[in-house]
């Protein structure tokens, strides 16, 4: 049996009521008793619409947010029990690519600085010299389909698809095993989306990465993921093999969602 790399056990998150000038705001239950287990080397898709709690879950996995109840385990280690030094080492192994490639790169940093930053931050593990870091950055860029000539450029000189490639290179810089992909293609045009999706497939085959893919786009999830979980208003609605869920959804929510998916149905496509 394959071992799980990420286990989310009965996680709940409640945003507390805040006192404001006009009285108290209501409590918000962002996650309610969610349990998910992601196996090493697989692509796991998390599907949810806005307000479903998928962002809260992502932030919890990155330990940017602490769950109100439940545990999140990375390779059997409870994130909440890690010391800050251990947590920092863990950050090298869990990385994220964000949705908006225009906002997730610091406009004042060159591509070299952006891609080498994770190596610099984790240099106690990686132990690379300045030249080695630049070499590795160039390697990473060619891995994602860019070239060493791009090292001295700045983010604003790139198109959306190229920026997302830079984000992927940055995420790979610290040598992670688990990659959180937070809607990495939803800000891109379809033809560019196809390139980035192919790149992701290829990187996974080459580097043996585990993907935790968050999206509201069912077609993309079906294309990339081995297993899927549907989340609705903070609760896990359905989970299973991708084909099973798309071909025979059990819950009403899954049926509704799959039914609402706009699709280009073409005869010739079956070939």
């Amino acid at each position: 049996m394959p071992e799980p790399i990420l286990q989310i056990e009965n996680v709940s998150k409640i945003y507390g009521a805040r006192r404001t000038l006009f009285g108290r705001t209501a409590e918000v239950q962002a996650l309610n008793n969610v349990s998910i287990s992601v196996q090493k080397g697989e692509s796991f898709g998390l599907v949810g619409e806005s307000g479903s709690g998928k962002t809260t879950l992502t932030r919890s996995i990155l330990h940017l947010e602490t769950p109100t109840a439940g545990r999140i385990l990375f390779e059997g280690q409870d994130l909440a029990l890690l010391s800050s030094a251990e947590l920092r080492r863990l950050r090298a192994r869990v990385q994220i690519v964000f949705q908006d490639p225009y906002a997730s790169l610091n406009p004042r940093m060159s591509v070299r600085d952006i891609v080498t930053e994770p190596m610099l931050v984790h240099n106690d593990i990686l132990n690379l010299s300045r030249v080695q870091r630049t070499d590795r950055a160039a390697e990473l860029l060619s891995l994602v389909g860019l070239g060493p000539q791009h090292l001295s450029r700045f983010p604003h000189e790139f198109s959306g698809g190229q920026r997302q490639r830079i984000c992927i290179a940055r995420a790979l810089a610290s040598g992670p095993e688990l990659l959180l992909l937070d809607e990495p293609t939803s800000a891109l045009d379809v033809s560019v989306q196809a390139q980035v999706l192919n790149l992701l497939c290829d990187l996974q085959d080459r580097l043996g990465l585990t993907y935790f893919f968050i999206s509201h786009d069912l077609a993309v999830v079906r294309y990339l993921c081995d297993r899927v979980a549907l989340i609705y208003r903070g609760e896990l609605v359905e989970e299973g093999e991708t084909d099973e869920i798309f071909d025979a959804p059990k819950s009403d929510y899954a049926k509704m969602l799959i039914g609402a998916m706009p699709e280009v149905k073409v005869r010739g496509n079956a070939a």
């Binding site: 379809v190 033809s191 560019v192 989306q193 196809a194 390139q195 980035v196 999706l197 192919n198 497939c201 290829d202 085959d205 077609a219 993309v220 079906r222 294309y223 990339l224 798309f246 699709e263 280009v264 073409v266 496509n269 079956a270």
Partner: peptide, 20 residues
């Protein structure tokens, strides 16, 4: 090319034809 870049039910992993 546009149609070929849309993932459909039958597209195999890694086989999407993006537009260069």
């Amino acid at each position: 090319a546009l149609m070929a870049s849309i993932p459909t039910k039958h597209s195999k992993r890694g086989s999407l034809n993006g537009l260069g």
